[in-house]
Design a binder for these strands. Structure first.
Length: 449
RNA sequence: GUGGCUGUAGCUCAGUUGGUUAGAGCACUGGAUUGUGGUUCCAGGGGUCGGGGGUUCGAAUCCCCUCAGCCACCCCA
């Protein structure tokens, strides 16, 4: 040992914004993804994957100036300019342009993968993080918008949330209003200001709009009026419809919202979980119709945990084929943080419910054979790898979160039975050992459920 | 990228106006008549005080740089 310490030790550390996941955290994340995946599958969304690295020209200038600056890029060993994906939307656009001919439309896919952004870190904001997107592309029919909302609704139920609210808006409403006010060209700046409404208040937003666009305060006030409507969804919808009556685009937006709300109601989504909210804008300016943001009732401050919307033309930079679509992104990191805070994570350090102490090393083959039988019955089981004292092995099993220990020593083998010990209560019951281990399997299942 | 705050054992922190071998709790490892854990008792391992440089007789304590974390702006998942 002393020999090996002669060299300088390298300080183990991770890059800014990059992090390790310990078993508990990684387990929680995988469980979350598993549940989301089950919901996607239930609607017929199929998985895809794309490379982490793309030709730089594919990624550059696609998100915004900001994402260009934040993109990790370099020259590979073959002299190619490459970039690491900073979201899953741009790769999807490239993917669709390249393969839509074979796949046909509409294409429903989901994509859970790591993305990278070299931006400044903050709590809940990292340089390497995972996105979980699902999209329906190749159709502009409103039924896809409806389905997207239903998927979002089911996602949160599947994750164990009861108290959440999907905020709905339609970009056409605001666009329509801005058209009638002659402010269409300032849409982006105004949206950006509106996004801060909840944070900085109406007065400051109005001031920011006036400052950014040089428009009259009255016009800014009208924009704000649209965003500050209160009441039931039906009341807000009526008021919105009236405010945008002069604009063809605005009227269509209001109509789409009306149909969307009606459909969700018809399917049985509780009104309390849906909120017509004309103030949500999403920073991104590529959305053109329906917009979603989702907030947790218990933790509204962490922001939207599932956002998305409709876009007119996903892949126009890569193909002449018009590909409208709609999709949303589940905020895995935020959700994980929220679930941690709300104590909703059940993940333990071990995925194995059962634990077999290596009590008598001479019996290793028996232990391994038994473990194999349990695994065949879909019971995850770990055999301790060294013959320590039983007490120490049980301590290990307890710490790791195993639910049941199967104790098998000379006495048990002689009596042809197995001690099934519930690690939560400490109670042990003797179960007969059989050729097919049926009683044992039943006993473990009985304890675990 | 800009501004502010922070950084002592795996974790949470103590370390007085700079002064001798840097501490505690929890965790970890081993033990308490060698077949039963989560309680107790005993012992032990583990820190060049984030890293580097400077001031000083002497620095965890003061200064500079750097790295990392947190907060705000920005933007967003």
């Amino acid at each position: 040992m002393a020999e090996s310490r002669k060299h300088e030790l390298i300080q183990p550390r991770t890059l800014k914004g990059f992090r390790d996941f310990q078993p508990r955290e990684a387990g929680a994340r995988e469980e979350l993804i598993d549940r989301a995946r089950a919901v996607f599958h239930s609607y017929g969304f199929a998985p895809i994957d794309t490379p982490a690295l793309e030709y730089l020209e594919i990624l550059q200038g696609k998100g915004s100036e900001e994402t260009d600056k934040q993109m990790y890029q370099f020259e590979d060993a073959g002299g190619r300019r490459v970039g690491m994906r900073f979201d899953l939307t741009v790769p999807l656009a490239r993917f669709a342009a390249q393969h839509i001919g074979q796949l046909g439309t509409p294409l429903k896919r989901y994509h859970v993968a790591t993305v990278w952004r070299g931006e400044n870190t903050q709590r809940g904001r990292f340089r390497e993080f995972m996105q979980c997107d699902f999209d329906t592309i190749g159709t502009d029919n409103l039924s896809s918008d409806i389905e997207t909302a239903l998927v979002i609704h089911d996602l949160f139920l599947a994750l164990g949330f009861e108290d959440f609210r999907i905020h709905l808006n339609n970009r056409k409403v605001l666009t329509g209003l801005l058209e009638t006010l002659g402010l269409a060209e300032h849409a982006t700046a105004i949206l950006r200001a509106l996004d801060k409404l909840a944070k900085i208040g109406a007065e400051k937003v109005q001031a920011e709009i006036v400052a950014a666009t040089g428009t009259e305060p009255q016009a800014a006030e009208q924009v704000l009026a649209l965003c500050q409507l209160t009441g039931t969804n039906a009341e807000i919808l009526d008021a919105v419809t009236e405010l945008v009556a002069d604009s063809e685009t605005g009227r269509r937006g209001a109509e789409e919202l009306r149909r969307l709300l009606a459909a969700l109601d018809a399917v049985g989504v509780p009104e309390a979980r849906v909120k017509l909210d004309v103030a949500i804008a999403r920073g991104l300016d590529y959305y053109t119709g329906t917009i979603f943001e989702t907030f947790l009732g218990a933790l509204p401050d962490i922001g939207s945990v599932c956002s998305g919307g409709r876009y007119d033309n996903l892949a126009e930079l890569y193909t002449k084929q018009q590909l409208p679509g709609i999709g949303a992104s589940l905020g895995l990191d935020r959700l994980l943080a929220a679930m941690e805070e709300l104590d909703m994570l059940t993940s333990t350090e071990t995925p194995a419910v059962a634990f077999i102490p290596l009590f008598d090393e001479a019996r290793l083959h028996d232990y391994l054979r038994l473990a194999a039988q349990l695994r065949e019955a879909a019971i995850c089981v770990e055999v301790y790898p060294l013959p320590k004292k039983l007490g120490q092995q049980l301590k290990y099993a307890d710490r790791r979160g195993h639910r049941v220990a199967l104790i098998l020593g000379d006495n048990e083998f002689a009596a042809s039975e197995c001690q099934v010990k519930d690690l939560a209560t400490g109670e042990a019951t003797a179960v007969p050992l059989e050729e097919n281990a049926a009683s044992l399997i039943a006993a473990i299942r009985g304890l675990v459920e």
